[in-house]
């Protein structure tokens, strides 16, 4: 996946990871890598501009705290951030399902796309978007 394409989705992915609870930058990029099965092996610093951008938009709040003897800035979703995460998840699933229908044409891929594009949350909060990206890119 190209850097530009990745940048377009990074904000949504960060929101999705933060739905699981507050995290600092190091933990966040680790979670992103783990939950994507190693697919998103980004330069670790790339998550910080996204976090600052989301904080400026009021979707994320942050504060310094002591974690494991070190001071770290911990980020958490705000109420509007939680709504934005749900919205982006829904949008991505609709988009992903449509792309899958076009690429797959029919058969198993189409069925998977339809399931992924369901209107109800039928999986973990972040598993949808992350899995969806891997599906389209592969």
């Amino acid at each position: 996946m190209s850097q530009d394409m990745m940048r377009g989705h990074l904000d949504g992915l960060v929101l999705a990871v933060l739905t699981g609870g507050p995290a600092h930058g190091y933990g966040l990029i680790e979670a992103l890598r783990d939950r994507s099965g190693g697919f998103f092996d980004l330069p670790e610093g790339s998550v910080y501009p996204a976090l600052h951008r989301l904080e400026r938009s009021g979707l994320v709040a942050s504060g310094w705290s002591e974690v494991g003897g070190r001071r770290r800035r911990v980020y958490s979703l705000t109420a509007s951030g939680r709504r934005a995460a749900e919205q982006r998840q829904f949008e991505w699933r609709s988009f992903s399902a449509a792309v899958e229908r076009v690429f797959g044409g029919g058969g198993a891929g189409s069925a998977a796309g339809s399931a992924g594009g369901g209107r109800t949350a039928d999986g973990g909060p972040a598993a949808g978007p992350v899995g969806g990206v891997a599906e389209v890119a592969s």
Partner: peptide, 14 residues
């Protein structure tokens, strides 16, 4: 200042 502190903390972890 804030970016430098955050980046330094992350790099220390790495």
């Amino acid at each position: 200042r804030r970016i430098m502190r955050e980046v330094a903390a992350h790099l220390a972890d790495l």
